[in-house]
């Protein structure tokens, strides 16, 4: 990596961190409805993997999707406005926190049903292969998702049909309040389940963005050159509750969180590494972090001042056909009832 690329990567991680910390405040002000799942602590996973993607590489994930969105280049404004349900949001206020989308940036969401995105990601990889392109689809999920049937069906199809999909299991140790030991048979290694499907697998320290990049690069090479799937299990940790609705009091102790924050924080560790490498100076780091905070503040104001969707917007975007009435439309009839 060049010096510039390293600084850019650090900047993106810092932006994710500050964006989400700003989200907490807005949530506490009551401006974000429903669920808000924070990615704080897991930044190196999205940053390391997504920073490697090229033109024909796609990605899809679950509901903990802000980090991935910012990594593909979504703006803080559209991301923040989506959280507050505004029409200026990336999905025009129709998706919310769990349903970010940016297909123009190869980002296919943002999915609220645990594991439900695994077949979709496999299908995106299938489409890339069908079109004769050298690409892939990174399909992210949590450690709880690996117990969903849809994930296993996706594993089987990916391997059976040699699809260039990379399943990334972001193992943060918990699915809501259930520790991995309490949810998963053979909890020592989730990636190893790949063997049952004759797939390659690897485990990665998700606190070290360099390691994430190095090992993901091998999986991408396998996808691009051999059109073969991989399961990557990336060990990581979330600092906040499962969502903002989780008081986080019953299933893990504060000491555990503190240890991760103090000793394994991926943003901090990367900053220290770059300072050591003399790529960053303390001043430059300060500038980057200040800019990210200012950007998040601006996004908060933008989200605040943006208008809601209108009543008429409720019935838009249901059918392509309805939104594109013209000489070429063939479908008729009444779709929307009062």
């Amino acid at each position: 990596m060049t010096k510039e690329a390293k600084i850019a990567l650090y900047t993106k991680m810092a932006r994710i961190r500050h964006f989400e910390q700003r989200c907490i405040r807005i949530y506490q002000q009551g401006k974000i409805g429903g669920f808000l799942h924070l990615y704080v602590g897991q930044e190196a996973v999205a940053a390391g993997t997504i920073s490697l993607l090229g033109k024909n590489d796609h990605l899809i994930t679950g509901y903990r999707d802000h980090g991935h969105g910012l990594m593909v280049g979504m703006g803080m404004n559209e991301c923040m406005a989506e959280l507050t349900g505004k029409v200026t949001g990336c999905s025009q206020g129709k998706g919310g926190s769990m349903h970010y989308f940016a297909p123009d940036k190869n980002y296919w969401g943002g999915h609220g049903i645990v594991g439900g995105q695994a077949p979709l990601g496999t299908g995106l990889a299938y489409a890339v292969k069908y079109q004769g392109l050298k690409g892939s689809c990174l399909t992210f999920m949590g450690d709880g998702a690996v117990n969903q049937g849809a994930v296993h069906e996706a594993y089987n199809l990916a391997s059976l049909w040699d699809l260039p999909v990379i399943f990334v299991v972001e193992n943060n140790g918990y699915s809501m309040g259930t520790s991995q030991e309490r949810s998963t048979a053979h909890p020592g290694c989730l990636a190893k389940r790949a063997e049952g499907y004759n797939m390659a697998w690897d485990v990665i320290n998700g606190h070290d963005v360099y390691e994430v990049r190095a090992k993901t690069a091998l999986a991408l090479k396998r996808a691009h050159e051999e059109s073969k799937p991989t399961v990557l299990e990336i060990f990581t940790y979330r600092y906040f509750g499962h969502s903002m609705a989780d008081p986080d009091k019953t299933y893990r102790d504060k000491e555990e969180i503190k240890t991760y924050r103090d000793k394994k924080d991926p943003v901090l560790l990367f900053e220290q590494e770059l300072l050591r490498e003399k790529v960053l100076t303390p001043e430059l780091s300060q500038t980057i972090n200040d800019a990210a905070m200012a950007e998040a503040d601006k996004a908060a104001i933008f989200a605040d001042e943006s208008p809601d969707p209108t009543l008429a917007d409720i019935t838009k975007h249901i059918y392509w056909e309805e939104d594109n009435r013209g000489p070429k439309t063939t479908s008729r009839g009444t779709i929307i009832f009062e």
């Binding site: 299908g123 299938y126 199809l157």
Partner: peptide, 21 residues
């Protein structure tokens, strides 16, 4: 031909359709 895996192959078809298949 697909395996007996309706959630898998239909989900795969939905994903592929998002990219124009």
């Amino acid at each position: 031909d697909t395996p007996i895996s309706e959630a898998g192959f239909i989900g795969l078809g939905i994903g592929a359709s998002m990219l124009g298949i």
